[in-house]
Design a protein around this nucleic acid. Sequence first.
RNA 1: GGAGAGAUGGCUGAGUGGUUUAAGGCGCACGCCUGGAAAGCGUGAGUGGGCUUAUACCCCACCGGGGGUUCGAAUCCCCCUCUCUCCGCCA
Length: 433
Amino acid sequence: MLDIKFIRENGTLVRERLATRGAGDEKKIDEVLELDEKRRKLLAEVENLKAQRNRVSKEIGALMAQKKASEAEARKTETREIGDRITGLDRQVAESELARDEILLRLPNLPHATVAVGKTAEENPVMRTWGSLPHFGFKPQSHVELCESLKLVDFARGAKLSGSGFLLYTNWGARLERALIQFLLDLHTAEHGYTEVSTPYVIGRDCMVGVGQFPKFVDQAYAVQEGLDQGTMGKLYLLPTAEAPVANIHRDEILKETQLPVRYCAYSPCFRAEAGAAGVGTRGMIRVHQFDKVELVKIVKPENGYDELEKLVANAETVLQRLGLHYRVIMLCTGDMGFASAKTYDIEVWAPGQNQFLEVSSCSNCEDFQARRMSLRFKTEAGENRLPHILNGSGTALARLFVALIETHQQADGSVIVPEPLRPYLKTDRITA
RNA sequence: GGAGAGAUGGCUGAGUGGUUUAAGGCGCACGCCUGGAAAGCGUGAGUGGGCUUAUACCCCACCGGGGGUUCGAAUCCCCCUCUCUCCGCCA
């Protein structure tokens, strides 16, 4: 959420920056300012009345204590009407506040000044590339073929259990998935200084609002209904990413400055309805309704936000380097950035069987956009409460990592060589049929 | 799922309609005292919002959340959430 005070004082700037996203959000600014103006006007009015009522009530109390009942009665009738006016104004204040926040909650974050301005993914600048295109002395198979021949994933039965977009990993496939999860968690905790957490997979509405998933993207979430009681319907959601619960761990708290930076990593499955994406890259494991991911979340002082973003990306890159996978880092341009982010780098890994790069990580600095939504602050040494920057990044998403890994390390005989760092977890150096 | 108890500031713990402007204690910060410290004494200290050049005044709101009664609610009434104890069920 953007700071209403900032919008008030920098209307032009806000409109310009929002316009670079190309979604027309800047048109909402006038309306927000109007509602805000209205709210503050009504608020001043009602607060004066409340001050007046407080004074008179106190006087009545004093009169009662002095046993001057009739005088007290007179003051009561005199002020009775103030209460009605207050009730009416209170309602109007609440209405304009609600209307204002309804818009504010749907306005995306302002892109950082260093973000490339552009409309679509075509305009995302490539920051760097690591490794090189793998060479094969044969025609590389796609992960779908490999999964079938090596019996790593049973696509048909996954669909039987839960519909298309759900995977049944089998035998070495299941073990490889588990090995990857453990490798990633060990890497980020032991070497990168993150504290591991394991969160509920079913989370409340407030978590979703806090990270900016709601109210705008409700239709992308799976809502959980407890039993058949309609009263509980829609109160809980399957998490779309561990970012949602993890970033909210300190919601409504004031951290001590010395606690920062906070660094968490968490494994979780991620559930995405992918409404409207039917038919887009649905074959195989590239776009599914449920996938595993290890997520990294940082809460840092604002002045360190962008240094920490670079480090976050580097932490995620380490994963691909260790696994010997060719990848590139791109910066999302203003038109392609996510709702809550001020600056995002995506890491894309090369998938030889697809002959394309696949997004396996998205690392963002959301600045204070989420912190404001969830009322997460920290107290400086000087005693001032400030909003921290909240960063998140995948470290990394698994289904696509799985794809790139088996496609890259496949051999002419149809087996897959297991990269060195995974061998202690998988207890084998080669996956064969 | 059933029965009961509870939710008050950083913590503890009073407060059942009006000097509560939330007592007292612990802890915290600063000052006095001291050679230094402890003890003692004094002062201060929450969150959000409005007004404002201002983190200065002043004002409003906040005692788990939401509604209601009243001139006035931490206190009375209704609904909800969470925690604890016991019982039942259960991996």
